[in-house]
């Protein structure tokens, strides 16, 4: 019972990292995506270079740089640990989401944009009222993949000493107990099971149209 309570405490932190990362990275990803598709070449290449760096290096390294970097490089005060985790995760996931969004937006036929244009709609009206829902439908499967990965990536937070569920489970090893570690696995499984159901419900909801 005390094991369960302690793991629940750890899992609460895990969920916080998960939820806050999503809240920030989903809209931030859209901005990054627009940047990477911008007609202004220097901006486009800058953003694509940024995506390359973020996707090309380990999240663990990014976490350490964001937490220790400001102090060691610029003699600034470090971000609070938890904040540093959210910043690093949000930037990292925004870049992955941006690429998923870009794929989704580019897969929509030019004809949809042109149809909006000849009817007199502005580009943003066409995007939000015509293109967006079609994009959402197409990107749901890769987004669910990425989001399930995020649930598990939260364990990396411990690298800068942010408490989470695996750490909670591991602390029982001192007392000679291995099963709490397996137990943490159950937390992940149940949560990801719920997410899977959620996403398949969303996919079914959008099945009313094709395109």
């Amino acid at each position: 019972m005390s094991v369960t309570l302690q793991l629940l405490q750890g899992f609460e932190e895990t969920l916080k990292v998960f939820a806050l990362t999503l809240v920030f990275s989903i809209p931030l990803g859209l901005l990054v995506c627009f940047g990477s598709m911008s007609r202004i070449k220097p901006l486009r290449w800058l953003i694509r270079g940024f995506i390359w760096v973020i996707r090309g290096t380990p999240l663990m390294l990014q976490l350490m740089v964001i937490f220790y970097g400001p102090g060691l490089m610029f003699h600034m005060r470090a971000l609070p640990r938890f904040t540093a985790v959210i910043v690093a995760f949000s930037i990292n996931y925004a870049c992955y989401f941006a690429e998923i969004y870009r794929g989704g937006i580019e897969s929509i036929s030019q004809g949809q944009w042109e149809a909006g244009q000849v009817l007199g709609l502005s580009r943003s009206q066409t995007f939000f009222r015509v293109v967006l829902l079609q994009v959402v439908k197409r990107i749901l499967p890769p987004m669910s993949n990425e989001i399930i990965t995020l649930v598990k990536d939260t364990a990396l937070a411990r690298i800068i000493a942010v408490y989470e569920v695996i750490w909670a489970g591991e602390s029982f090893i001192k007392s000679g107990l291995i099963w709490p570690l397996f137990y943490t696995g159950a937390f992940y499984l149940v949560f990801n099971g719920l997410l899977t159901i959620l996403f398949s419900t969303a996919e079914k909801k959008l099945n009313y149209f094709r395109g």
Binding site: G111, E114, A115, V118, L119, L121, Y208, R210
Partner: peptide, 28 residues
Amino acid sequence: QFGLVFQNFNLFPQYTALENVALAPKLL
């Protein structure tokens, strides 16, 4: 002043026939 009907229709797939016709007049 111009309207265009495309070779490939380019209807908006997530809207019904009625919604397709009414969308632009509503938004504008």
